[in-house]
Design a protein around this nucleic acid. Sequence first.
DNA 1: AAGAAATTTTAACGTACGTTAAAATAAATA
DNA 2: TATTTATTTTAACGTACGTTAAAATTTCTT
Lengths: 223, 223
Amino acid sequence: MKTDNSGAQETSRTKENETKGKILIAAKKIFSEYPYHTASIRMIGHAAGINHPLVAYYFSSKATLFEEVLADVCEEYYKASINWFDEISQMKASSGFRLYIERIMEFTQKHPEAVRILLLNMVQSKESDAIPCYQMLQKLYERVIPLFLKTTSAKAEYHKIEMFHHNFNTLIANYLGAGAYYAGILGVDPHGPEYQRWVRENLVSLFQPLLKRLILGVNHDPG
Amino acid sequence: MKTDNSGAQETSRTKENETKGKILIAAKKIFSEYPYHTASIRMIGHAAGINHPLVAYYFSSKATLFEEVLADVCEEYYKASINWFDEISQMKASSGFRLYIERIMEFTQKHPEAVRILLLNMVQSKESDAIPCYQMLQKLYERVIPLFLKTTSAKAEYHKIEMFHHNFNTLIANYLGAGAYYAGILGVDPHGPEYQRWVRENLVSLFQPLLKRLILGVNHDPG
DNA sequence: AAGAAATTTTAACGTACGTTAAAATAAATA
DNA sequence: TATTTATTTTAACGTACGTTAAAATTTCTT
């Protein structure tokens, strides 16, 4: 049995946690490579180096495993976000924004799972066969808005800030999560510095001016 | 046999074309609801009201059928684009852009297939199990850039115009193709006028100022 | 109307899926 | 050490997949 985790023996839980951990790591990898309905327990078992029915011993179903992975990567992303905003809180808007983009790009290169899982499962087919925990995907970026508000003390109406946020996160998610698509069009290597530079320059030049106006609360474009 | 289509009898091809047409319509629907590897010949057969092996009688493989559907929707989109640019060619930039967005939104509401197929298959898992005709997806929007250049006589460097184009098309594809995701976050109906208004207002306010500068060839933000 | 050709149906192939059950092994307890 | 418990392996279930082959049916040609 794997219930009853209350205190006492520590060594006894080692084996279980080891295997469960291996499964979670493998599942994170597979679910960030294939959409939920294409990713399979067998792939995950193979990636974890175990027999696939062992997955069922630790997770009651595929949906449960997916939920746990999703909660993991969302939390990981949220905690990183807190750090980024903390780091730029004393900087001026323009340089702070540049650094924020730098951080989010570094992070996504190291931990592409959140953004990939989002892109792979965002487009729903039918309500009936929706992926588990769809709301968690919807909250992935949404939770960051309060951090933005607190750090920047932006004066613009919430409506405008929300738009900015969706635009920025949608673009960065696509450019970093579907790099092969865009880099292919641009004719560069999706993992090379050229593409990274393109994404950075693009996002900065598009959003930097807008961000300034959001923070000041200026309504219209001055051009 | 279904080869030998050379002239002469017209009536003899009726039945074949009818069924083939039904399959193409059904395939377009299914491929725009499910990613390539999740969509199935059986689903398509069911949607077309025929036995699924009959699909194999008209299309040599699932990949071939997908390619034909993809070529169809891409051509449909490209032809529509020509009309939009034609319509706005004599207008001033700001009102022309508004109308362009209006047209692209109308079109996508009526023909969501291109944008949905793009979003559903854009994120590649492995080169090994890539979806067929991935390049066609990559060319979907790219082909429109020359139309933009010709119509607007934009003065900015190609690099900047290309960025604008990817940003605009990525956002509109996501907002229109994954409406359930964003409308869910915003708390509105993805098919209602509220959401449509949000997308329109958002895109216009983000890209309108930038477009003006692209056409004039001004390099930096005046804010 | 008879025969040939095109179209549709039925049946089946090998493979993969998520999940369950039971057997086999490893670890902990007494 | 004996035995109970936890973990892992093996085998199997029912279902769905793309594709092929062979029958059955419809349509066209003569």
